[in-house]
């Protein structure tokens, strides 16, 4: 058992897999000697050398194109896109090439690759360095989308993503990089497509992702003190989606609240609401409520950003109000 930050867990997860499998290589901007702008890859260059850990030019299309070409010819690349906002300059490679080529070629090629990226707000970086893009990725057939909420999950889900034979978009909430927890020693391997029940309650189910998970847990504590007993589910993986766990936990309490950092329209919670109402409508005791960032670009000022992204307080008041009407 060791105390590990979320950012240290990234390097540990990648290193665990690079030690095990020579075909795992890592590339991105400032990832080698500098250890990543978020210091998520410190130590990788020293341990694995410059042939396996490659600093690239500022060329996002080349980074992801190289990852794709390498994946289809025998390697298992892990590529870093520094900020998830930058997916916008290389989305062709992600959405048109990587996601579709297996299907188009009738299964002739596979893409065992991971694209990891710093996602989301909370660091006052403004609208072009703070977006939560999980819904961009989720809407493209052919991509798996993984979003861990704590250091232990980072390692296990990273390992599972690297071992998976399909392309995985691995989104790391930047605001969580400095969070710490006790992490087990030795190899950690998790399972994609498995949500986790972090708290069991009887009145309402909060389903949250990434940076919203610790907020949902804090809100559940406050709500419990006020007499509303909540289940909290960490989605962990949008594709594949563990609907079995989610439907079971929502059915058990009869109420669903999604807590989403993405802007409102087409957020993952909308899809979840649709699945729940189609499949367990008669188990519901009240409306499904989505708690999201409003449909706006994120502002930079701390006071404004805090108003935009769902806060513990907003979760508590929204749930309380809805449960009492």
């Amino acid at each position: 058992m060791a105390q590990l930050t979320f950012r240290e867990a990234i390097a540990r997860g990648i290193a665990q897999e690079m030690r095990r499998d020579e075909s795992v290589v890592f590339l991105g901007e400032d990832v080698g000697a500098a250890g990543g702008v978020f210091k998520g890859t410190v130590g990788l260059l020293e341990e694995f050398g410059g042939v396996r850990v490659r600093d690239t030019p500022i060329s996002e299309q080349a980074i992801l194109g190289a990852a794709m070409g390498a994946a289809m010819t025998g390697l298992r690349p892990v590529a870093e896109i520094m900020f998830a906002d930058f997916f916008a300059v290389c989305w062709d490679i992600v959405a048109n090439e990587i996601a579709k080529s297996r299907y188009m070629t009738n299964g002739q090629v596979t893409f065992p690759l991971v694209i990891r990226s710093g996602n989301g707000g909370g660091l006052r970086f403004g609208a072009q360095h703070s977006q939560s893009v999980e819904n961009w990725a989720m809407m493209v057939p052919g991509l798996k989308v993984v979003v861990p909420s704590n250091a232990q999950d980072v390692i296990g889900l990273m390992a599972a993503s690297i071992r998976d034979d399909d392309p995985v978009i691995f989104l790391e909430a930047k605001v969580l990089y400095s969070t710490k927890m006790d992490v087990a020693d030795g190899e950690i391997v998790d399972t994609l497509g498995s949500a986790k029940v972090l708290r069991q309650g009887k009145d309402a189910t909060l389903v949250a992702l990434g940076a919203m998970v610790p907020k949902a847990l804090d809100a559940a504590e406050e709500l419990a003190a006020a007499g509303i007993d909540c289940t909290v589910v960490d989605v962990r993986s949008l594709v594949p989606l563990d609907t079995t766990t989610i439907l079971r936990e929502v059915g058990a309490t009869g109420r669903l609240f999604t807590v989403e950092e993405n802007p409102r329209l087409c957020g993952w919670g909308g899809e979840l609401a649709s699945i729940v109402s189609e499949e367990i409508f008669y188990d519901l005791d009240g409306p499904i409520v989505r708690i999201t960032t409003p449909h706006i670009p994120l502002p930079a000022a701390d006071a404004l950003e805090d108003l935009a992204i769902p806060s513990v307080e907003r979760i508590v008041t929204t749930v309380t109000k809805s449960m009492n009407t």
Binding site: S59, G65, A67, M68, G69, T73, L75, N96, V109
Partner: peptide, 23 residues
Amino acid sequence: MGSYAIIGAHLPIACGAAWSAQY
């Protein structure tokens, strides 16, 4: 290894295959 219909996309992809051969 594929025919690509988005202009320019396959140049970096070919680089990736070449990188894999080199590696």
